[in-house]
Design a protein around this nucleic acid. Structure first.
Length: 609
RNA sequence: GGGGCCGUAGCACAAUUGGUUAGUGUACCGGACUGUCGAUCCGGGGGUUGCGGGUUCGAGUCCCGUCGGCCUCGCCA
């Protein structure tokens, strides 16, 4: 009988139907239960676990396996036998392998972190250790499965994009500095002393050039590099986007592609997560919500739509107030006073208000004035500042009842809402208002094209290369601050998955748009000349977006940290603790690159010989 | 760069809120056990409590500094 040198089956294949067969399994020694005369071994591979029994009929093997440490690689020949007492926790639990021959292919040293998690303990050791010994961490069930589901999701993205008529591209990694806002990673050129490549922050310019090149639908699982600090949902240094761009496309065309993709995901992912309830999409098609509507209602441009607690505008209820802070706010252009009613949170006096105020102050807000409605007198920090009429009108506007806490935000339309948006999220989290099995996607549309900067000057509010709604007529005829952009986000459960835009592909409109923001034609030509140049020779209208791949996977896997869905992530300081990167380099390497190191003061820099 | 939390055995955690020889689980080493299955039972080794100062009769515990990690804000399509 010819036999594969390492295995005839995986550790998740053998069933009752194989009983009596002689097979060979290869895998890791996962767990060992030693009973002296016989030793039970759980053999694990990528696919699953099979129990192997070493008994008195093969004393030498039993002796050998007893001495092995867990995580050693074993190649075991044996006979598939039916188990008297099946183990319904294992997919292979009907059978076991009676060992007849054993090869120890790779003996494991004592482990720095354990792969088999002790009963009752978490599989999340210290991050530093997990990253240093990532290949061990990746053997553990949850992380291993996350990486597999990552593949399921990425493959679904590729399949979907091809099915929708997209062509996959690769664009340069060694490229130039492009007009996104983040810090670039620079790569020195050996051949051109003093010159540098930049790693792409996104393939933005390339995909637009491909549109100009006549390709109809572009996509790429695109690596992006930005030298910015980490967040829980943002990897430092590098991450991936599902980058896509469509020619002759409207905003709705772009939305359709993404919405149909995400619609499929819960069904694709669920079979890999049998221990959890399947995710449900709250609303399909995804709601399209104008920017100012979500800011007004939820206090953020990335709303968590899984629960209510919406904000109320009480500007009219307090107009003419003698309370200085509110009066000042209302005196400004588009100034507002907004309220958030928190049912029942006034029951225990001022405790909740103080706690919430402390939390928003930690986020850098000035404070959180509040009222507590009771059966009798109103209480709270604004009790004396507001008149009885004002208090009554606020009650009517917010629908507040006895025991309710009402907190206030004031200032510009955005400022007034933002602080309450933070409170809304805090309370939503404390009270578990969001159903964790829901996926509440939405498109946020109609972002303002311009805004006022700190000095009161008109500035682009987001991407200067998006198309203003109304085009040239709007730029020439409207108050710039009223112009909306074909600029949009997709959000889910309070996380921004992507921005996107219908691009400005018309040089005349682009010059005018920049002119309103104070840039001359010469400025534009100098900074973005090659793009404008391309657009002068016939470029179709086009637009797209670029959902974060890692973030999308987090959402479907319910992982709170991006490192749980990336095989080899960097730590918060953008170091790779497994391969020790970044690292110092040899003098010869620096010489070849014509580079000299000038260390910051007090920092010890080494140059290797 | 700012703020918060944390740092005790290979790993995960405890230690009466300043008081005896720093414990428990797991891992490791040895022993017992013929159906275990996150095995069980018995025994053993393993610690400069991140590091450096300070307060105190006495510091894992309090104070200052420093290093490291995580979270968060700034930053960031």
């Amino acid at each position: 009988m010819s036999q594969h040198p390492y295995r005839t089956h995986t550790c998740n294949q053998l069933r009752a139907e194989h009983v009596g067969q002689r097979v060979r399994l290869g895998g890791w020694l996962y767990r060992k239960r030693d009973q002296k005369h016989q030793v039970f071994v759980d053999l694990r591979d990528h696919h699953g676990v099979t129990q192997v029994v070493f008994d008195e009929s093969t004393p030498a093997l039993t002796e050998r396996v007893r001495d092995l440490r867990v995580e050693s690689i074993l190649i075991i020949d044996g006979e598939v036998v039916r188990r008297e007492k099946p183990n319904d926790k294992l997919a292979t639990g009907e059978i076991e392998l009676k060992a007849l021959a054993l090869t120890v292919d790779s003996e494991a040293a004592e482990l720095p972190i354990q792969v088999a998690i002790p009963k009752g303990e978490s599989d999340r050791d210290g991050e530093e250790l997990r990253l240093r010994w990532r290949f061990l961490d990746l053997r553990r069930e949850r992380l291993h499965r996350n990486i597999v589901v990552r593949d399921v999701i990425i493959r679904a993205m590729r399949d979907h994009m091809h099915a929708e008529g997209f062509v996959e591209f690769q664009t340069p990694i060694l490229t130039n500095s492009s007009p996104e806002g983040a810090r670039d990673y620079l790569v020195p050129s050996r051949v051109h002393p003093g010159k540098f490549f930049a790693l792409p922050q996104a393939p933005q310019q390339w995909k637009q050039l491909l549109m100009a090149s006549g390709f109809d639908r572009y996509f790429q699982i695109a690596p992006c590099f930005r030298d910015e600090d980490a967040r829980a949902d943002r990897a430092p240094g590098e991450f991936y986007q599902l980058d896509l761009e469509l020619a002759f496309a409207t905003q709705e065309d772009v939305f359709g592609v993404i919405e149909r993709l995400y619609q499929k995901m819960p069904d694709l992912v669920a079979p890999h997560l049998p221990d959890r309830p399947k995710k449900r999409i709250q609303q399909f098609p995804f709601p399209r919500l104008p920017y100012w509507e979500v800011v007004d209602r939820f206090g953020t441009d990335k709303p968590d739509l899984r629960f209510g607690l919406e904000l109320t505008d009480v500007s009219e209820a307090v107009r003419g107030t003698g309370f200085g802070l509110f009066a000042d706010a209302l005196g400004k252009r588009d100034g507002r006073v907004k309220a958030l009613r928190l049912p029942g949170l006034g029951k225990d006096g001022k405790g909740a208000a103080r706690r919430l105020e402390k939390a928003v102050k930690e986020k850098g807000y000035g404070g959180l004035p509040h009222l507590i409605y009771t059966a009798g007198e109103v209480d709270g920090s604004l009790k004396k500042a507001l008149t009885a009429d004002e208090v009554a009108r606020i009650k009517a506007a917010t629908g507040a009842e006895a025991d309710d806490l009402v907190v206030f935000g004031f200032g510009s339309r955005l400022q007034a809402a933002k602080v309450l948006g933070e409170v809304r999220l805090l309370v939503g989290r404390e009270q578990n208002l969001a159903d964790p099995t829901l996926l509440a996607f939405c498109f946020v549309v109609d972002f303002p094209f311009y805004e006022l900067d700190d000095e009161g000057k008109v500035q682009f509010s987001h991407n200067p290369f998006s198309m203003p709604q109304g085009g040239m007529d709007a730029l020439n005829g409207m108050d710039p601050l009223e112009i909306k952009a074909y600029q949009y986000d997709i959000c889910c459960n309070g996380v921004e998955l992507s921005s996107g835009a219908i691009r400005n592909h018309r040089p005349d409109v682009m010059y005018r748009a920049f002119e309103l923001a104070g840039y001359s034609k010469a400025d534009v030509d100098r900074e973005f000349g090659h793009m404008i140049q391309a657009f002068r020779y016939g470029t179709p209208p086009h637009g797209g977006m670029a959902p974060g791949v890692d973030r999308s996977i987090m959402i479907f896997l319910d992982e709170p940290n991006i490192r749980e869905v990336v095989a080899f992530p960097k730590n918060q300081k953008c170091q790779d603790l497994l391969v020790n990167a970044p690292s110092f380099v040899r003098k010869k390497q620096l010489d070849e690159l014509h580079i000299r190191i000038v260390p910051p003061e007090g920092v010890d820099v080494q140059i290797l010989p």
